[in-house]
Design a binder for these strands. Structure first.
Lengths: 199, 199
DNA sequence: GTCTATATCCAGATAGAC
DNA sequence: GTCTATCTGGATATAGAC
C-alpha cells in the first residue's frame, strides 16, 4: 500500500466524518425515515449521488452513528468506574460532566437523543437494534454498581439501586432530549437537584 | 338533521377513534414518517383506501393525536392545581399518578412519548408545531407554581423552582420513553426516589 | 362504507460521463 | 471524486365500482 493510498484513505475518512456529523444532527431532529439523503447532501453542498461514494446506504450511516455513540458513552462509563474516587463523588462527577456536555458540546445531547429515539423506535435497521441490545446495558450496570458500593459505605440513600440507576439515566436522557428540542432556550439545571436523589 | 345522520356520525366517530388508537401506537414507536397508512389499515384489518374516508391525510391523524394528548395532560394539570392539598402532597400525587399511568395504562406512556418525540422533531406538520408551542408550557408552569408555594411554606427544598419543574418533567418523560421502549421488562421505580428531589 | 385500481410523486440507489 | 441522469420501488392520495 503506497503513500497515496494511505493519504487518500485519510481524506476519505475525513469526508465520511463530515457526512456523519450532519447526519447526526438530522437523524436526531427528524428521525431516520424523515431524513432524506438529499437533506444530508445539500447540507454539505454536495450532490445526492456523491453520498453513496462514501456510504452504501442511509442505514449504514445510521448504524455507524449508533455504534460510535455507544463507543463514546461506554468508554466514558468504564473510565468513571475505574477512577479512584468515593462512589458519591463518582456520581457527582458523572452528573456534572453529563450536564456540562449537554449544555456545551453540541454533539452530546444529539448522541443521547439518537440513542433514546433509536431505543424507542421500531423503525430502525436490525444492526442498530442489535447494537442497542448489546451495548445499552453497560451504562446502567456501571451506575448500579457505584450506587451499591456507596450504599455499603453508608454514603448513598438506600433505595433499590437498580431503580436509582434507572432514574439517573432517564433523567439525563430526558434533559438531553429537552435540550435538543429547545436549543438556545435551554438552561441547565443545578446539578445538586439531581444529587438530592442520592444523598 | 334526522336521527340517522346523528347515528351515522356516532359510528363514524367510533371508527375514527379506532384508527387514532392504533395510529398512536405506531407513531409513538416508529415515528410519523416511518408509519405508513398501510400499517394503520392492516393493523385494523381494513383497506388502505378506507382510512381516507375518515381522515384527509396521515398528518391530520397525527395532529389530532397531539391535540388530544395535550388536552388530557393539561386537563390533569389544571385539576391537580385546583385540589385543596398541601403543595408537597400535590407533587407526591402527581408523581404517583404519573408513574402508575406509565405502568398500567398502555396509552399514557405512548402519549408522553408522542409529545416528547414531536417536541424534539423537526419533521412534523406545522399545525402540530403550533400546538406544541401553545400547549406545552402549561404543565411546566403548574408544577413550578406548586413548588414555589411549597417553598414559601418551607415544605419543599429551595432550589430554583423552574429547574426543579424541568427535572420533574424530564424525568417523567424519560421514564415514559423508557417504558415505551422496554415494554414488559420495565419495572416502575419507587416514587419516593423522585420525591427526594423535593424534600 | 368498503373495496380495488390507479395516478402521481418522491426518494433510494445505480450507471456512466467528465 | 464528483456530477447528472435514470431506474426502480414504494407510498400518498384519488377515482370509481359495488
Amino acid at each position: 500500500m503506497g503513500r497515496n493510498t494511505i493519504l487518500n484513505q485519510k481524506i476519505k475518512d475525513e469526508r465520511r466524518g463530515r457526512i456523519l456529523s450532519v447526519a447526526l444532527g438530522l437523524f436526531a431532529t427528524k428521525g431516520l425515515t424523515a431524513t432524506k439523503i438529499t437533506d444530508i447532501a445539500s447540507a454539505l453542498g454536495i450532490s445526492q449521488g456523491l453520498v453513496y461514494h462514501y456510504f452504501r446506504s442511509k442505514e449504514e450511516i445510521f448504524v455507524e452513528l449508533i455504534r460510535y455513540a455507544f463507543e463514546r458513552m461506554n468508554e466514558a462509563c468504564r473510565y468513571l468506574e475505574s477512577l479512584d474516587l468515593p462512589p458519591l463523588e463518582k456520581i457527582r462527577m458523572a452528573i456534572t460532566e453529563l450536564l456540562k456536555g449537554i449544555e456545551k458540546n453540541e454533539d452530546t445531547p444529539l448522541y443521547h437523543l439518537l440513542i433514546a429515539l433509536a431505543t424507542a423506535s421500531d423503525a430502525i435497521p436490525a444492526q442498530a437494534k442489535d447494537l442497542i441490545k448489546n451495548e445499552n446495558m453497560l451504562s446502567y450496570d456501571v451506575i448500579t454498581r457505584i450506587i451499591i458500593k456507596g450504599q455499603k459505605e453508608g454514603a448513598i440513600k438506600k433505595h433499590d439501586p437498580k431503580d436509582m440507576a434507572l432514574v439517573f439515566w432517564t433523567t439525563i436522557k430526558g434533559l438531553a432530549i429537552h435540550k435538543a428540542a429547545h436549543g438556545r432556550k435551554y438552561k441547565t439545571p443545578d446539578p445538586e437537584i439531581l444529587m438530592d436523589i442520592f444523598i
